[in-house]
Design a protein around this nucleic acid. Structure first.
Length: 594
DNA sequence: ATCATCTGTCATTTA
DNA sequence: ATTAAATGACAGATG
């Protein structure tokens, strides 16, 4: 189309067209397209304004039609939905007929589309479907040159609809009309733009392919576009969509209008609630239509529009099925926190194993036999502590119920720490820090030992209290030897643990400090080497100058006969007071010898 | 399986 | 002499 128009265009228009081409092909022009077209913005504003007016008009008309149609509906007492007073079979038949009708109608519109403006089309539509107004034959509204009567199907249906709105057939048709109105305009826009073979539309769309059932019901005008014609020139639609559409083709149609059909194709006829908001759905899906239309059309209905898809049903899409396997979804579903899965991981066995295997190792003193009873006590503690877990979210409870004995023990031990330690060792139930977890395990182990011996202090108190307070605390309670020994061990271990941490910390700091010192010393060494070389160079220079000065002075000396002294026989020497002597080398050597 | 690292613990030294 | 802190060494856990 553009290529056809190009020869007709003024040279400046051709330039603009070239800019358009480049712009549409995403060629970086260094500036927005508006820069090259001064009137572009004005045109756009005008177009937008015009579109808004048309949209308002159209929606008003749509509301009127909805009112009229709602009046023709009956309330389904089971579903609470408004349903047409037609039998499903009838509805299906009428839908098929409506599809035909719409298409033929569109064909008629398209035939005159070139001659009609969008306003005229709107006017025509408004007059064609006057629900509130008295019956007005469509043919009278139309341009006499293009009478509807040329379509063999159209006139009777229109007559039925307009003359007897309460008839099921006409009611269904009214639904179709209602739903098709915005799309019909879009279709008109497409057709006016394309002006392609209408016979193809007429023949392909009414064939009623399966994928077109819903589509054709609500978007009869777009039916042929989806079924046959999009394949004919899809690139054209793509090109028209990318923004240059408004400037190249009929300015009355927005880009958004191109997207409507795909939206409509996703809705089932039984979903009335969605039928009442066609514009909203169009808007929602506008952004998605740039991608593969068929894929989106097939995927979106289930995701966006299918009422049965509720939050719970979403889990059925996940690999782990709720119905088939209860435990996994339960662990995964409420627990968006991966820390839980970490806890649930098989790795949890190792801490548990270490806890029991460590008892004989770590406890050389009286703790060992106490810890021998720990597994049993752990279980008892577990049942004893478990009610305390109730304050945590139900997730943990659910999960802990699903886990084998060892992880559960771990979990409960961790949970047990919580209520007992009020002073600061309480940990969140789900921690992703494994080091922390290990620390918890250790502390909980001591805590468990203390619990096993019924020691009435927390590990924190035992470890962190000052000596006086600690002694006072222990003296205030009646404690047996085992308890006192465990308390001492707990305190010793806790203190030593902190000391070890500090020691390692200091060691690392020392290493870092020593590395820093090492670097400093290396830098100092380099600096000194450089200074030494500089000094050496300076010294050589000074020696060179001294030698030159010596030669100069020596060459100026003359004996009694005015002859110069030989450097082999004499030399210059100076004393500490600055006096310079000419000394014969022989004498000099003699003097040196003396 | 192996290695490096982290951490807790014990034994010993140090303050 | 006593005690807490510091530190070396060892073993288990972990990546």
């Amino acid at each position: 189309m553009m290529e056809i128009e190009l020869p007709k265009m003024h040279p400046s228009q051709q330039d603009m067209e070239l800019i358009d081409i480049l712009w549409r092909q995403d060629v970086d022009l260094g500036a927005g397209r508006e820069v090259f077209d001064l009137s572009y913005r004005q045109k756009e504003v005008e177009l937008r304004r015009q579109r808004e007016q048309e949209e308002e008009k159209r929606q008003q008309h749509l509301r009127e039609q909805e009112k009229a149609l709602l009046a023709q509906l009956q309330l389904d007492e089971e579903t609470g939905e408004f349903v047409p007073r037609t039998s499903p079979a009838e509805g299906a038949l009428t839908e098929a007929n409506t599809t035909n009708r719409q298409i033929t109608q569109n064909g008629a519109f398209t035939a005159e589309g070139d001659a009609m403006s969008f306003d005229e089309c709107m006017q025509l539509l408004a007059e064609t479907f006057p629900l509130d107004e008295p019956t007005q034959p469509a043919s009278t509204c139309l341009d006499p040159s293009i009478p509807f009567s040329t379509d063999p199907v159209m006139p009777p249906d229109m007559a039925v609809f307009t003359q007897n709105p309460l008839q099921p057939d006409s009611l269904d048709q009214a639904w179709m009309e209602l739903l098709s109105l915005p799309e019909l305009q879009q279709c008109l826009s497409m057709q006016m733009q394309e002006t392609t073979d209408m016979d193809g539309f007429m023949n392909s769309s009414p064939s009623g392919e399966v994928q077109d059932t819903n589509y054709s019901q609500y978007l009869p005008g777009m039916d042929h576009l989806s079924s046959g014609h999009t394949e004919a020139c899809p690139s054209k639609y793509i090109n028209t969509y990318d923004g240059s559409f408004n400037t190249l083709v009929s300015p009355n149609f927005s880009q958004m209008s191109l997207n409507g059909p795909d939206v409509g194709s996703k809705f089932g006829p039984e979903q009335f609630c969605e039928l009442f908001y066609p514009e909203m759905d169009i808007k929602v899906n506008n952004g998605l239509l740039t991608s593969d239309e068929t894929n989106m059309a097939s995927q979106l209905p289930e995701i966006a529009c299918d009422p049965p898809v509720n939050p719970m049903d979403l889990h059925s899409f996940s690999p782990g099925n709720f119905s088939s396997e209860k435990s996994e979804p339960l662990t995964e579903f409420p627990d968006s926190d991966s820390g839980l899965s970490l806890d649930a991981s098989p790795g949890i066995n190792s801490p548990g194993k270490s806890m029991h295997g460590d008892e004989s190792f770590g406890f050389s003193d009286s703790d060992s036999e106490e810890m021998d009873g720990s597994p049993g006590s752990a279980e008892s503690d577990y049942t004893e502590i478990f009610p305390l877990v109730h304050h945590s979210d139900g997730v943990q409870v659910l999960v802990s119920e699903k886990f084998p004995a060892e992880p559960r023990q771990m979990r409960l031990k961790n949970a047990k720490v919580e209520p007992a330690e009020a002073s600061g060792h309480s940990k969140p139930p789900f921690t992703k820090d494994k080091l922390k977890k290990r620390s918890e395990a250790r502390l909980s182990r001591d805590e468990q030992r203390a619990k096993a011996l019924k020691i009435p202090f927390t590990v924190d108190m035992i470890i962190n209290l000052p000596v006086d307070d600690f002694n006072e605390m222990t003296s205030k309670h009646e404690l047996n030897e085992a308890q006192l020994a465990l308390i001492r061990d707990i305190r010793r271990r806790g203190k030593n643990k902190v000391a070890a941490q500090n020691c390692r910390k200091r060691k690392l700091e020392n290493i870092v400090g020593l590395e820093y010192v090492l670097d400093s010393l290396k830098e100092e060494k380099e600096r000194l080497k450089k200074e030494k070389s500089e000094r050496s160079a300076s010294l050589r220079e000074m020696k060179h100058q001294l030698n030159a000065l010596y030669q100069e002075v020596f060459s100026m000396l003359r004996d009694e006969q005015g002859r110069p002294f030989s450097t082999n026989e004499h030399s210059l020497q100076h004393t500490a007071d600055g006096t310079v002597f000419l000394v014969p080398r022989l004498k000099k050597t003699l003097v040196e010898n003396n």
